[in-house]
């Protein structure tokens, strides 16, 4: 469990509180309120306050159906999928949503970003759960889910290198593209608890990434602002077009939302690439651009790995965190993410 909380200024922003700062701390009944000058607000506190501001009981829940899925996907590595994925997921939790992260990459970089060393832990990854489901065996999802923040505000299904084996058995299974979707639907009691599911996909185009895409309605394509990344859009576009044409009869259609990452004002190549993106994808490109910021590079600690964490946790007042918060706000609208089924204003 990670003890991440924010001070009142960010807490005000996350809850959308507009009243007097003095009144804010009394929204939450805490025992030791007055002894500390600064209150720290955790994800579950923020949810509590938001529900209170909406005049809902603290245990307000959502209907058991599969929530919106943000699938971070790009057909090229190193563009910042994991960084965006981890930061957006943590920020969504800090906005008071219940979030489930699924690490869908055998490199397990999302797992590492949250300080989990997959080399010496016993990890039940998503491929294993799907395999057991496919073989009609009992699936222990609860043990595979690792709590990251208190009260299931942020949970993670971690991964390790053995996730790479998934394609070997997926190859021989019927309806393999929709196996992940079927798995979610069959366990709606577990997955329906969350307000949103965030998936970190691998860069390769394989059966597992296809299965993730077939369960999503809109992928979040992260594009690094250079020529190589723009070239990779070709691969992604043909991948998306192939799935769409293959399953259009089932009413399946995959949309794409694009986020530009790594903008640096002194590189003209960045501006050039962004111009190309903005001209080609006027409706799909997110207005928020993620800057090339050093906070993102300080996220992972090599020797004290348990101290690793997304930029929003480690440097919540940095430029990087600001971009992540604004991106998250736009994604809440884009993906219609709600709290306890209540539309968020």
């Amino acid at each position: 469990m990670r003890p991440f909380g924010v001070r009142s200024k960010l807490a005000h922003e996350f809850t959308g509180f507009t009243g007097k700062p003095k009144d804010f701390r009394f929204l939450i009944d805490r025992e030791k309120q007055s002894t500390q000058y600064h209150n720290i607000y955790y994800a579950d506190d923020i949810r509590y306050i938001r529900l209170k501001l909406m005049n809902l009981p603290p245990d307000a829940d959502r209907k058991r159906r599969i929530p919106p899925i943000i699938n971070c996907r790009m057909s090229k590595g190193g563009v910042g999928k994991t960084v965006i994925c981890g930061n957006v997921a943590a920020t969504l939790a800090m906005f008071g949503h219940r979030v489930l992260m699924i690490d869908g990459d055998p490199q397990a970089s999302l797992t590492g970003l949250f300080g989990i060393n997959w080399a010496n832990e016993n990890i039940n990854h998503i491929g294993e759960l799907m395999y057991r489901f496919h073989r009609k065996e009992s699936v222990y999802i609860e043990t595979a889910i690792r709590p990251i923040y208190n009260n299931h505000m942020l949970d993670l299904i971690a991964s390790d290198i053995t996730l790479a084996n998934t394609d070997t058995w997926l190859m021989g299974s019927t309806n393999r593209e929709f196996l992940f979707k079927k798995f979610l639907d069959a366990n709606v009691d577990v997955f329906g608890r969350y307000d949103v599911i965030v998936i970190d996909s691998a860069p390769s185009t394989n059966l597992l990434t296809n299965a993730f895409m077939c369960a999503s309605q809109k992928i979040l394509a992260v594009v690094w602002l250079d020529g190589q990344s723009l070239k990779a859009m070709q691969v992604l576009a043909s991948n998306v077009a192939e799935l769409n044409s293959a399953f259009s009869e089932l009413g399946f259609h995959l949309d794409v939302h694009i986020v530009a990452n790594g903008y640096h004002p002194s590189y003209s190549s960045c501006k050039d690439a962004l111009t190309t993106l903005a001209s080609n994808y006027p409706d799909q490109l997110s207005d928020i651009v993620i800057p090339h910021a050093s906070s993102f590079m300080r996220q992972v600690e090599l020797y004290k790995e348990e101290q690793s964490g997304p930029a929003i946790e480690r440097e919540p007042n940095s430029t990087a965190a600001r971009a992540v918060i604004d991106l998250t706000k736009s994604l809440v609208k884009e993906y219609d993410i709600r709290i306890a089924d209540q539309p968020v204003i």
Partner: peptide
């Protein structure tokens, strides 16, 4: 700094 209407040089489109 950037523009939205660069002519030519098109990337593959995603169908709506």
């Amino acid at each position: 700094a950037i523009s939205r209407d660069r002519p030519g040089e098109t990337l593959p489109k995603f169908e709506k």
